[in-house]
Design a protein around this nucleic acid. Structure first.
Lengths: 223, 223
DNA sequence: ATGGAATGTATAACGCTGCTATGGCACACT
DNA sequence: AGTGTGCCATAGCAGCGTTATACATTCCAT
């Protein structure tokens, strides 16, 4: 009883075009008509594949979570668990800036429902904290509790930077300072934490340099 | 050469009506036509007293900063500087929730220009940190540096709660835990900080209870 | 006191938005 | 091969922010 199968390619094409429009021309370019002409269909496609623009925006938020997951997955684990954690934070930070409009949809858009989707992305951070606890760098504690603190810190720094309340340099510096404070509060040795943060930043810089070259982007990373 | 003076009452009426619409019916109710009928004028009023809806929204953000300043001003200083600081954080938190739509305009709306307005509100927090340093609770440091960390923490917790990523209780608990961690990192004694946070929360609860009774609101404050 | 210039405001319209009713058309199943 | 289901294009609706125009009001200069 399916006369014409719903083409999933159209759905992904819509999401892809929407994401592209978002990063290239900003949120104002994200309209049904524009989207329709972009994928070469009519505005009805939005309503057959989604319930409307709101649900498409939710799908876009999901796309944002997947990109974030991709960035986080690019961070390999090492014997320095705190360095890994710092690198994950850096990946979070740069993903938020690179896909800032998507980040908006993920966390800064007024949600009607409480979509708890994408929170398994957060699992990566919890696991990293767990490894640091196992390695003895952090005191015994609930990994989620510690990871949440780091998340609050990252999200706060990222969004205050987006709001022009902190410059890029300020945000980066404050986040590193806060990370040091929290790592120490979590049980790590101050000097060891400082060294791990330093190495974590170096790894992020390398990683991002490679990434930006791959994408042909131009990202300036201050000292 | 001023045939008809621009009535400032209309401007404030517009801002007041906009703020009321925002808190009572949400952002979707904030339209030029709705606003016009609300203040009993035509849509043109928005364009004579503002350049358009965007500038009106900026004025609304300013209104939000003033309300925040009012909340913060309601926190008196005591001999326990860390308790004061915690109470300020609580006031910040509850203001953000009570005027969440205004808070959105202040920090979560994509700004074209970098309005650095309202950052003198932040001065209150810097001064509170300065008092804690003078009192010897915190080590000698740049007060702004420490205050910024607390701000990042508060903003992160508030916005993650707004995004339904943290429940009210979770946000409150995490913020108190983080505050303790940061206070200790700033140089305070752990037990002293714990006691100050406890007293700060009690003060906020009292303050908010009085405030909510005055406004006839119903705010539930968990233990 | 009076004419004229300047300026806020109401009305109507424009282009845009998200969205929906309608109808045709391509497909899968019997 | 017939048939009906369901995707999609067209056209239209109500609403949005904004603007052009006409009117009314007010102040200054004479």
């Amino acid at each position: 009883m399916s006369p014409k199968a719903l083409d999933p390619a159209v759905r992904t094409a819509l999401v892809d075009a929407a994401a592209r429009l978002l990063v290239e021309e900003g949120p104002n370019a994200l309209t049904t008509r524009r989207l329709a002409t972009e994928v070469g269909s009519s505005t009805m496609a939005v309503y057959t594949h989604f319930e409307g623009m709101d649900e498409l925006r939710k799908a876009l938020a999901l796309e944002g979570f997947e990109r974030l997951a991709g960035y986080l997955a690019g961070i390999s684990t090492s014997e320095d668990t705190v360095e890994d954690m710092t690198a994950l934070g850096g990946a979070y930070f740069f993903n938020a800036l690179a896909n800032s409009h998507l980040y908006r949809f993920m966390f800064m858009e007024p949600h009607d429902e409480s979509d708890e989707i994408g929170l398994n992305t957060f699992q990566t951070m919890i696991e990293a904290v767990g490894r640091a606890i196992e390695a003895g760098r952090f005191d015994e504690a609930d990994p989620e509790e510690l990871a949440t603190q780091l998340w609050i810190m990252m999200h706060g720094g990222v969004t205050l930077h987006m709001a022009n309340c902190l410059t890029f340099d300020e945000a980066l510096h404050m986040l590193e300072t806060m990370a040091l404070n929290l790592y120490v509060a979590f049980g790590d040795d101050r000097e060891a934490a400082k060294a791990s943060i330093e190495r974590g930043r170096e790894r992020i810089v390398e990683h991002l340099a490679a990434e930006s070259e791959r994408l042909g982007l131009e990202i300036s990373i201050p000292g």
